[in-house]
């Protein structure tokens, strides 16, 4: 499955139509193309380069529904100059969008199998399109479990959607936090600790992981302990992406470019590089 894009270096103009504050540092933008004939389609896991004019351009995974082609959704965490400025964006403001770029999550390979989604922090945003895709094709997937870890209960995103996913689509969602002072009734501890408590078929499943590299590392270890093979584990990598089409070399990672060959990788294709501390 692939999607053709016209001129990958030329941003399309999009108008911000809705802004939602998810947490104290995370927000979601809904945008529509200024060119009304533009149809935007993407695959779960792909990213766009979002250009805030006068400030800069950043790669952000698409977090909306892949079946919605008339508007675009990005959930962004304010972590640097550009994303800080984006957090102050107003409805009606114009941004430039290039994309979609990169590889996608194995939504076809996972059909007929158990699906284990493991997200850490803002890593849930690139996984939400997979959830939407599964919801739209629910009968094609077996057991679906989403394990989600964050820093504290205040950092949880998309919580209002979990109930619908669980009640109407038979998707199990479990959240865990690293620390809490509140009346939190959920899990406390690292997200990989939840893997051992889940029932899935290690030989007929696909694991999809997105979050900080260290969290993905320990999640993979736990999955391997459960006898899941590297070929059935997929992770999303993050590096400093600039051109997004494999020309500039900023995101080179060993023999691969994260923007072009990734960001989604089968673990077996990248595990050798992950082991090298020099890269």
């Amino acid at each position: 499955m692939s999607i053709q894009i016209s001129d990958p270096m030329l941003p399309e103009l999009y108008k911000v139509t809705k802004i939602q504050e998810n947490t104290h540092d995370t927000f979601t933008l809904e945008m529509v193309p200024k060119n009304k004939t533009k149809i935007f389609s993407f695959l779960p896991g792909q990213f766009n380069m979002i250009y805030l004019f006068g400030v800069g351009e950043v790669p952000i995974s698409i977090s909306g529904d892949p079946s919605s082609t008339d508007f675009l959704v990005h959930t962004i965490r304010a972590v640097g100059t550009v994303t800080d400025a984006m957090s102050k964006i107003k409805e009606g403001q114009t941004v430039g969008i290039r994309g979609p770029f990169g590889s996608h999550w194995p939504i076809e390979k996972a059909m007929g199998k158990d699906v284990l989604l493991i997200a850490g922090g803002i890593g849930l945003a690139p996984l939400r399109p997979v959830v939407y895709y599964i919801l739209a094709h629910r009968s094609k997937y077996r057991k679906v479990v989403l394990l989600y870890g964050t820093r504290s209960p205040d950092d949880i995103i998309y919580e209002e959607e979990y109930q619908n996913w669980q009640e109407n689509f038979d998707i199990t969602v479990e959240t865990t936090v690293d620390n809490t002072d509140s009346e939190w009734q959920g899990h406390v501890g690292i997200v990989s600790a939840l893997i051992s408590k889940k029932d899935f078929s290690p030989t007929n499943m696909v694991a999809i992981i997105c979050g900080p590299e260290i969290m993905m590392h320990f999640s993979v270890q736990e999955l391997v302990r459960r006898e899941v093979t590297w070929n059935d584990i997929y992770i999303s990598m993050e590096r400093n992406m600039k051109c997004a089409i494999g020309f500039c070399g900023h995101c080179q990672y060993g023999a691969k470019f994260i923007c072009k060959d990734g960001p989604v990788f089968c673990y077996s294709s990248i595990q050798e590089t992950l082991k090298r501390r020099e890269i």
Partner: peptide
């Protein structure tokens, strides 16, 4: 080991 990872505060913004 799990507690050690928890102590790393892996979701904190690094600037």
């Amino acid at each position: 080991q799990r507690t050690r990872i928890q102590l790393l505060d892996i979701y904190k913004i690094r600037t």
